[in-house]
Design a binder for these strands. Sequence first.
DNA 1: ATTTTCGAGATTTTT
DNA 2: TCTCGAAAAT
Length: 723
Amino acid sequence: MDPVPWMEKLNDAQKEAVQATEGYVRVIAGAGSGKTRVLTYRLAYLVTVLGILPENILSVTFTNKAAGEMRRRIRDLLGENSAALVNTFHGFCVTILREEIHHLFYPNRFLILDVEDQKALLRELYGEMGISARDFSYSEILHEISSRKSNGLYVATVCDPAFQAGPPPSGGEVPDKRAAIFSGYLAKQRKLYALDFDDLIQFVLHLFLTVPEVLAKWQERIQYLQVDEFQDVSSRDYELACLLSGKYGNLFVVGDPDQTIYSWRGANIRYINEFDREFPNVRTIVLDRNYRSSPSILSVSNSLIRHNVNRIEKQLVPVRQSVFRVLHHHARTAKEEGWWIARKILSLREQFGLEFSDFAVLYRANYVSRVIEEAFVRNKVPYTLYNGTEFYSRAEIKDCLSYLRLLAFHDDLSFLRVVNLPSRGIGKTRIAFLKEYAAKNGTTLFEAFRRNGSDRIFARTGASEFLDAIAEGERLVDHVPVSDLLDFLLKKTGYEAELLAGGDDDRKNNVAELKESIDDFEKDAGEPTTLADYLSRIALFTDLSRRERGDSVKLMTIHAAKGLEFPYVFVCAMNEGIFPSQRSRDRRDIEEERRIAYVAFTRAEDGLFLTDAEGINFDGSPRVPSRFLLNIDAELYDHDGRIDPALWNVTRQYEKVTDWDETPEAEAPEAIGVKSRVRHPVFGNGTVLGVSPDRRFFTVKFDAIPLPKNISSDFRGLTLAEE
DNA sequence: ATTTTCGAGATTTTT
DNA sequence: TCTCGAAAAT
């Protein structure tokens, strides 16, 4: 008695979820339990069985990859015009802002800043303030800006028409330099009318809370809201979902608390765990049948995740038959580890008639990929590197996009990037001249340049050639596709000539790949795309990074692999300090690392291989196998290669520091000062070389380790040594 | 005044 | 291994 034939493919719990369209519904969906299928079928059910209009339905996720996959599937079920009902949080915010941002005294054309842009903006600011990047590292400051922004109040400041975008306070002793950097950053972003990733959501929330008719309009539109990966929502995402679904009260959330791996970005497991206490009459559906992984892989995963204390017990039940037992390989060097993986892939492929694309290699941190790549090159294993942000932050890609952005926005950020690229003899001094003119006349740098391009200051430079190219490009903007526009610009500005002259094939390929991706984008959109359209979308595409080339092994971080599945998975560099990361300092951090491992393991369908290698860490300490290997019941997996029991002992030492419930009562950190002799549970005895100005950490030279290490002053394990 | 070179420092995860 | 900033060279 199913209303639609495809419902036959679903089990009872999945069917129940698909048909639970009204009210507040929470689905706890274990890895590989057919979550995506439920989400897509539910959309199809709403449209075909209930007759709901697609524009009244919205399905949101976090990544473009997941949204793209959903769009593809829903298109297969419902046809072309259904794509719009799937979006990412950020993409949907852009949609809202393009219609509504004028309420906030921002123009409808706003610029979206990615991390590289943010850094460029900071670099400018530092120059004006006379600050060095050594004292205030970009990433640290960006993190702080992000957390300062999370209180939401700044939006009102930035949008205030009276907000002065003047130069930040400089010279003299500013009591709080970080506060000054923050306000300087806000001033700069306002001047550019730019929004960074945090702003996209913050501005929408601010709009909803201050302009009631905007909220009412979107609440009316979104009659059915479903949210994927709900375990990863932050307080802002949560607030947005609640507001949007506030009128009709149809909110359907899906997630798996065991797969929370974005805490560092504000994800809070609380929102899924306490969902039933927040809303009335919540229906909870549990999907615990696993269709993806073989029983061996599943029991290893279950065995691992059981070590997390803060967790709701849930056992995944396998549906499939086992193919291989999970295998661990311990290598003597990182190089050998890479070679073992390459060799294993070649032999499995030979033996079972597999494709290279059946294999994925996952790792905790991007830098691990280098060794693997090298081994793959040597063994002629074709691979595709999915390196998150890296593709779009490649210099040549940013260059190309900056040229396009300069045409669309005339903004200072893009201008500064491309004006001397290739080198036209326009350096610090001439830029300073432009800045002065721009400040005096209230124009953009580009306008200043256009007015003064023939001034004698710019004699003997390529100024006129550059201005001609841009002017001609502007005439073309509305008449040719974006891809042709880029082609034109690169030729006319001499960028392409310079690129071809250099022997760097990677850079050439990257530019070629960008052109292809623009082509794809235009075909995908169906209708002619405007430049502004393209630019506002591309800013969010950080993970579309690289198209798979031919039949090849996929290399990516575990975070990037979330939501994907592969027949054969290698999880490499399973060493203390890499995985779990050296940065994890307490039990909560370790539990998140363990969830990351759990996500990695549960990506595998038929085969799972875990590898680690001995060697030296950055700080000179020796590498030992990851504690997660010890977490798995020994009889559930096999070892290939012998491990010196002494290594396991060191692993246990590490484990004691962070994994035990409470570290024993220790001396108050105040007692430790410069030249104190201290004792550390893992590194042994050492001497304190220095204390950070804010007393956040001590710099300690341990006797047994060549380089000094910074130890958090909150860390209770560091005590005065009794000698 | 601009470009090149060289050395030091940094390395989680990403929308 | 790669990136960034300051000094040297053109």
